Amino acid sequence: MAQPNHTPLGTLRSQIQLTLHTHHAIRLWHGRPQAGDLHGILGLSGFVAQANRIHRDAAADDPYADAWLLRIEAKLDATRTVLLTLREELRDALTQAPSALDLGDNLNTAPVRLPVTVNAPLGFLALYLLADYDELARLAILAQHTALIDGLTLDLWLEEGAHQLRSLFSLVQPYRSSGVCRNDFAAGNAKASHAREQFGELPQSVLDGSQRARHAPAIRRSGSGKNTGAAPVPSVVDDNGVLDQSLIEEHRP
């Protein structure tokens, strides 16, 4: 009888790329580095790096990271609602075209394809929103080109969508790891006291783990015998909230 093959498996990997057709969406991907008096703006690439880091900290049983995941999910939901409203307004405008006229999809002849490295579900949710905005932008540009909306309406729609995404991305910019876990709070040790002084009090439901984000990771406590399998993800901002452009570059094409 043949012996079963016990060759160890490697890890699953997929090559994910994001295709963007508009300069408006590409600018939101990259963000803007700080330059002199011009403050930096976190783009999707920087948001993903921070989301990966928060996800890792939440997996290590950091209740402050769990609180951040709840904030991010709420902001993602609110942003999606606004983008859906803008899309419905755009669809109403596009229905004004005569049925005999096929406007097409207004795709770029040379779109930009960006490699994506996302370790956290919230990063993917933000990625989907940027893809939705790219679609919204190219269809709104088409609507303006075909006289279904005027230039002012186009600018208002594009700016409102971009503002919502910039607000989402900048939400995570101040995040810093607390370095504590729930066991520290249970023990009432100095690390927990220091974290409270730096980051404030947490709702009891977050502190005891009964309230967690929908996409929160499984908690891997030290001594459980489980390996996190993930290397620490550095912050893309320093303690003063300034973007570290060298780390953002790692997420660029």
Results as ranks from 00 to 15, higher is better:
residue 202 L to Y: 05
residue 198 Q to G: 03
residue 189 N to M: 06
residue 190 A to C: 03
residue 173 Q to P: 00
residue 168 L to A: 09
residue 11 T to E: 08
residue 24 H to M: 04
residue 171 L to M: 13
residue 168 L to R: 10
residue 170 S to A: 10
residue 132 D to H: 11
residue 47 F to G: 13
residue 135 E to K: 09
residue 203 P to G: 04
residue 84 L to C: 08
residue 27 R to C: 05
residue 68 W to E: 10
residue 130 L to Q: 00
residue 80 R to F: 00
residue 26 I to D: 01
residue 67 A to C: 03
residue 25 A to V: 13
residue 150 D to K: 12
residue 211 Q to W: 02
residue 186 A to L: 13
residue 69 L to C: 10
residue 8 P to V: 13
residue 210 S to M: 02
residue 88 E to S: 11
residue 26 I to C: 04
residue 235 S to P: 01
residue 205 S to C: 08
residue 170 S to F: 00
residue 171 L to F: 06
residue 244 D to G: 09
residue 130 L to I: 04
residue 164 Q to M: 07
residue 239 D to E: 11
residue 129 L to A: 01
residue 175 Y to F: 12
residue 183 N to C: 02
residue 52 N to P: 11
residue 107 L to P: 05
residue 214 R to E: 06
residue 79 T to V: 13
residue 237 V to K: 00
residue 47 F to Q: 14
residue 107 L to T: 06
residue 68 W to V: 12
residue 162 A to M: 06
residue 130 L to R: 06
residue 140 A to E: 01
residue 180 V to F: 00
residue 201 E to G: 04
residue 253 P to H: 15
residue 209 G to P: 10
residue 155 D to H: 11
residue 30 H to W: 04
residue 163 H to L: 07
residue 9 L to T: 15
residue 143 A to M: 10
residue 75 K to Q: 12
residue 46 G to P: 07
residue 84 L to Q: 14
residue 164 Q to A: 15
residue 65 A to Y: 07
residue 114 L to I: 13
residue 165 L to C: 12
residue 41 I to L: 11
residue 107 L to G: 00
residue 170 S to N: 09
residue 154 L to Q: 13
residue 81 T to I: 05
residue 191 K to W: 06
residue 1 M to C: 15
residue 223 G to V: 09
residue 175 Y to D: 01
residue 104 G to H: 01
residue 26 I to M: 05
residue 163 H to D: 12
residue 146 T to P: 01
residue 177 S to R: 12
residue 25 A to W: 10
residue 185 F to Y: 12
residue 109 T to A: 00
residue 247 L to C: 12
residue 74 A to S: 13
residue 25 A to D: 10
residue 128 Y to G: 03
residue 241 G to I: 04
residue 168 L to Y: 10
residue 106 N to R: 05
residue 184 D to T: 06
residue 77 D to M: 01
